[in-house]
Design a protein around this nucleic acid. Structure first.
Lengths: 121, 121, 121, 121
DNA sequence: GTGGTCTAGACCACA
DNA sequence: GTGGTCTAGACCACA
């Protein structure tokens, strides 16, 4: 599993954060499942433990993980991660269509081009 | 016209680039209209001429400006910048849709939440 | 009785310590009542005996327990643990009040917001 | 100004974060005032720039600062930091009085001991 | 073994 | 000059 790309302009810790957010949202990682340890994942991705630490800290802050000193890091279950993600996407969608309108592009046409409209009809 | 905000996390040169892209796409700046000189704009925004230079270079690279040595920079006739922008937005929209699908969120519901569904009916 | 939560950020030994402090202060555990043995409690909570040991040591240090070699640990008669707890809470309350004042927040309004003013009238 | 104490059990970055939060809430630091640079403050406190970086990142995340690459870090003005702090204090107050009640201590008496009651009468 | 904090120091983008 | 990211490696508390 190639989690990170050095071509990607985003920092490594952010790439890792995003990948794991997706894995958790998709349900690939189950609630209370144990994450790889900071050191182990650092070895696997040939990166520094500090970088993994930062990614995990961010995931914890956003409610995707909880970590227990001396035991490990675990996938959080209960939270409303999905609602959170949904609001985020709705927000992005809204500003995207807003921008289209500003430069005189018809949002509906744009939606059709993206293959969105089948969904909404 | 307050083009830049220091509260904004994006670098200043990028803020300027984006603002001018929008102005050109909206038609506020007409084709072949002359841009303010680097020095003048730097003064106006009380920023460094290097920063303006960089923004103009980026705008030129993306096809929004052309520069004439000894005379200044000018807005390009809207050859295909609209098509370009349209493609860009369609692309972003498509990957948003993709991401929603991956985490099991119904795109149609998302559209409704953004208050845009009326547009597409 | 679920004494510990792995979601909780505090170390396990501290969670156990706090739970038992409350149980003793509330009078759920009577003076001179025998505590479960270290090994037994460790089994019940499926945790490490070292961890329980540490919690008991802390409870003893704070005057909530006393241990008899070869017999076990017992709840201390509530000599002054209530006075102690009371002083502790008063202290915390006082510094809270202090902090509110420092940043210009009216303590009385704060009390009202917490839904506690009825108590003090 | 002695911002940090090695006696304090809290990590250094957290001590710094808290100190600056207070300074900003009290109005000692005015909106848009420039913070000392990461490197300079690190020298002053004889600590590592990374540690300061972390404190500033936390302050930024909580809405107390904004930082501009190449220019520096600045005190944020607009936000509702006070409302935020107020909610936080109200919450702490509430759970403190709740705890008192649980162990059979009269909250009103406690308030009086802390010198709180003059405020509410 | 686990995660959390910190130092020392490099290199980058940006102004 | 400024902040942001990262490596290498130490030491701590905890289980």
């Amino acid at each position: 599993m190639n989690l990170i790309s050095y071509q990607d302009s985003r920092p490594i810790y952010e790439q890792i954060t995003e990948k794991y957010k997706l894995l958790i949202l998709k349900g690939v990682l189950a609630p209370d499942e144990q994450m790889p340890s900071v050191r182990k994942l650092a070895m696997e991705l040939s990166t520094n433990p500090n970088t993994i630490q930062r990614a995990y800290a961010e995931l914890e802050r956003q409610g995707f993980l909880y970590s227990v000193r001396g035991r490990g890091s675990f996938v959080r279950g209960d939270t409303d991660i999905h609602a959170q993600k949904r609001a985020e996407l709705a927000q992005q969608l809204s500003s995207l269509l807003q921008e289209a309108r500003e430069v005189g592009i018809d949002p509906a046409a744009l939606l059709k081009e993206s293959g969105w409209l089948e969904e909404t009809d």
